[in-house]
Design a protein around this nucleic acid. Sequence first.
DNA 1: CGCGTGGTTGACACAGATCAACCAGAGTGG
DNA 2: CCACTCTGGTTGATCTGTGTCAACCACGCG
Lengths: 220, 220
Amino acid sequence: MLAVVPETVDAAAVAFPPCDLQSLCLAHASKHFGAEEEIYGEGEPAEWVFRVLSGSVRIFTVLDDGRRQIHAFHFPGDVFGLENGADYSQSAEAICDSQVEIGRRTVLDAASTQDCQTARELWLLTAEALRRAREHLVMLGRKTARERVAGFLVEMQRRSGQPNIIDLPMSRIDIADYLGLTIETVSRTLNEFQRTGLIDLPRYRHVRLCNSRLLDAMAA
Amino acid sequence: MLAVVPETVDAAAVAFPPCDLQSLCLAHASKHFGAEEEIYGEGEPAEWVFRVLSGSVRIFTVLDDGRRQIHAFHFPGDVFGLENGADYSQSAEAICDSQVEIGRRTVLDAASTQDCQTARELWLLTAEALRRAREHLVMLGRKTARERVAGFLVEMQRRSGQPNIIDLPMSRIDIADYLGLTIETVSRTLNEFQRTGLIDLPRYRHVRLCNSRLLDAMAA
DNA sequence: CGCGTGGTTGACACAGATCAACCAGAGTGG
DNA sequence: CCACTCTGGTTGATCTGTGTCAACCACGCG
């Protein structure tokens, strides 16, 4: 049976600490997804709700001609796949090997009609997602490539616990599709930041922030 | 006292029918706002929740240097100003003369901790706002100016009851700031659509859709 | 009548896209 | 241990969609 109890996520297994701080209990079933594996597709019946235990997940929309927009990256502790309609309105894939907790939506729905606390928890999660979507919206609608990349780095840094070094699980393509840019622009901008001493790119998918204060200011 | 009862909005006073179909009862207080008048500002304590009775409202964010991104337009029946944090995370202004229903957030909060139905209602509203924000996100991240303008017209047409003629309450600047474009690009694109026979611009802030099927396809 | 505001149009500039070549590291197989 | 290839990332040259700047137009109002 579902209950709302405080729950801690195994800190040892967690590369990025939970950012949707919440106590919602889904279930005790969990499943593994390999890199690039689909978790659900847009239009499929939304029967399940998920929480990342380890690894990372991307939520995205693909247009008919293949253009893709990534809506969000999810890290350990984050809940995703929460829908109010019958079907998923986006797709989800594991970015790298990931362990994902799975709960039945019907059970959660039932719980939320009986327990106001659960209902409020669901609302809180969705409201937080909305707040982030709106920040993202300003980024895509009104910011330059430099501001977007700086904003992305600051966001990732904030969500990774580490103070300065970021260990990115995603490729340049994912970053580009999240920021509404091309991989070339992302690459050029990151290397420009390195040349100007803002960051260091020590190795594959690692970024060290040398001046996160300035970077933060650049994100506008 | 707040209660959750089915409620109908006065159809005669409604230019655009409600799009957030919901039965949430706020209060029976209502207030008038003149054109361009602020309803609340980003960062102010979020003490009130609103519903448009007549007129139209824009929700937006302004960056330090004045760049503005409009997140949403709200028409009669729409609820706005619902926050989970302490403060409003965007600003709201009346676009034209508008009558707005006002409810205390504390009362709604209290109701939602006692009544699951109210709590679910709040969740539904927020989930619908999220769904729209994500559609908007794809538009800003991955679509061309033509696709954005076509999408905007289709969206406005869908939300206005009228089959073909749209009576826009907002200026070119508002449209541009909603679509992440400049007023010049919006103006050029609309006039290009007129030249190619897609639409007709009979008079100030009125658009007639001549080929909404094609327009729909163009929105991608 | 003059002025102010919102919208249109044109000329030109530029940020970022596109196209293409190249490079580095990880497998893989001989 | 060395070719070979594959994938993800970088870099350069060029193109183009949209922004910028500026002039102009049309309508409403004092």
